[in-house]
Nucleic acid binder design. Structure first.
Length: 245
DNA sequence: AAGTGTGTCAACCGCATAAAG
DNA sequence: CCTTTATGCGGTTGACACACT
């Protein structure tokens, strides 16, 4: 995509009209084929933005409002187990998206845990372009009939992720040898053979295979995995363990 | 009252991967 | 195989509201 084409896309909040166009499109065509949506609907947005808008806001499965104590507790536990695998965490927190969980963690839970709030350097303030009030009225999710979605759409929704994250188990990630091996040893008791990875794929449906992915999220010291018999149970069993604690 | 700093949330960016051609 | 396209993910940033001085 060239710079000229890029310039037609906005980087601002979605308007009510844009939401309506996107929802109308999804009602008719279902989700997927996101890159075609701008052309078909005339939306001045990237396909990726359309997908994000649907997943994070317009989808009827998205829960709005404050996080409950139970949700906080759940996220904290899951973060201990999974690290910054937000999509996996969100998949276990009904109604919450990875973006919501990530924001909530960075802005609230970090402080709650006393690990320091998420801070970033601030740039010079820029002129306000739209009132918050407008944003709120604009962003009101519109009702959508689930039956209008195509079969299989639920698989792509954030809270119905029933398939393993192949991205997480990428060869590139596992290719960080040594560290990744450590994880596989922890989880499978093996030396990280293909069989081990295959086993994980077969057994970890629903939770993905986070431990096979990049080691940057793995902190054996904070997980409590030592309490688990990790070489013979699936991650779903681990999940049940954490649920029961 | 006005200016500034901070918290929060929505959206975007860049990258990786799988699937399709 | 190689290239292109579609999708998904985590990190980062923009924009707004509100608290504080």
């Amino acid at each position: 995509m060239g710079a000229e084409e890029c310039s037609q896309y906005k980087k601002v909040l979605w308007t009510e009209e844009e939401d309506r166009l996107l929802l109308d499109h999804i009602r008719v065509h279902g989700t997927g084929r996101w890159n075609r949506i701008p052309k078909l609907t005339g939306l001045p947005r990237h396909g990726k933005s359309c997908r994000l808008r649907w997943l994070n806001y317009l989808s009827p499965t998205v829960k709005r409002g404050e996080f409950s104590e139970e949700e906080d507790e759940l996220i904290i536990r899951l973060h201990k187990l999974l690290g910054n695998r937000w999509s996996l965490i969100a998949g276990r927190v009904p109604g919450r998206t990875d973006n919501q969980v990530k924001n909530h963690w960075n802005t609230r839970l970090c402080k709650k845990l006393g690990t320091g709030s998420f801070k970033r350097p601030r740039k010079d303030p820029k002129p306000k372009c739209r009132a918050r009030e407008e944003q709120e009225t604009t962003n009101l999710p519109l009702p959508i009939n689930d039956s209008s979605l195509n079969a299989g759409d639920c698989d792509r929704l954030p809270h119905h992720q029933s398939t393993i994250s192949t991205t997480s188990a990428s060869t590139a990630d596992v290719g960080v040898e040594g560290e990744a091996l450590t994880k596989e040893k922890l989880l499978t008791g093996s030396e990280g053979s293909d069989d081990g990875e295959e086993w994980m794929r077969d057994h970890c449906v629903g939770l993905g295979s986070p431990m096979l992915s990049s080691d940057r999220y793995f902190d054996p010291s904070n997980v409590g995995l030592e309490d688990l018999v990790v070489d013979s149970c699936s991650l779903d069993q681990i999940w049940q363990h954490f649920l029961s604690n």
